[in-house]
């Protein structure tokens, strides 16, 4: 049978930053083809197809964040595969190769992590599960 894709609505304008992304205007309806864990979702809108940030979208039906996993306060060990310098107060800066614990995997690709006493948001695209080869 036909594949029914989930429809989401854009909550804010988004201007693409590369040719594989598409622009969004508030209220645009998009169909989601693939949800990447790093917070970029591949969608189609009219004749356009490309990646958009998941955080700019809300589901048309059903409760928001229905698929969001619960926080795991025990933490899951990950290693940074790229350094990142915090740009906002609730983010955390890390160098390459640091081991941290992931507490909450959010769909928008910004995960809550713990490093020692410090917690904050970190881009999941720069993390890899500890013990995994690249």
């Amino acid at each position: 049978g036909p594949i029914i894709l989930d429809t989401y609505r854009a909550m804010a304008d988004f201007t693409k930053t590369s040719k594989h992304e598409i622009n969004l205007r508030v209220g645009d309806l998009v169909e989601i083809v693939e949800k990447s864990q790093n917070g970029w979702w591949f969608c189609q809108c009219d004749s356009h197809r490309g990646w958009v940030p998941a955080s700019y979208l809300e589901p048309l039906d059903g409760p928001e964040e229905a698929e969001e996993a619960e926080p795991n306060y025990a933490g899951e060990h990950h290693v940074t595969v790229k350094a990142y310098k915090a740009e906002q107060g609730d983010e955390i800066s890390l160098e390459l190769g640091e081991t941290i614990e992931v507490i909450h995997k959010l769909l928008d690709g910004w995960w809550v992590i713990r490093k020692g006493e410090e917690t904050g948001y970190f881009p999941s695209t720069f993390l890899q599960k500890a013990g995994k080869k690249e």
């Binding site: 930053t17 990447s36 970029w40 990646w51 940030p53 955080s55 700019y56 928008d108 690709g109």
Partner: peptide, 22 residues
């Protein structure tokens, strides 16, 4: 075909979205 997702972090949720989620 679907290309690999961008490797740069997606933007943080815009302010108007964060307000809505609170």
């Amino acid at each position: 075909s679907i290309k690999n997702p961008p490797q740069n972090p997606p933007p943080r949720p815009p302010v108007e979205v964060r307000r809505k989620r609170v």
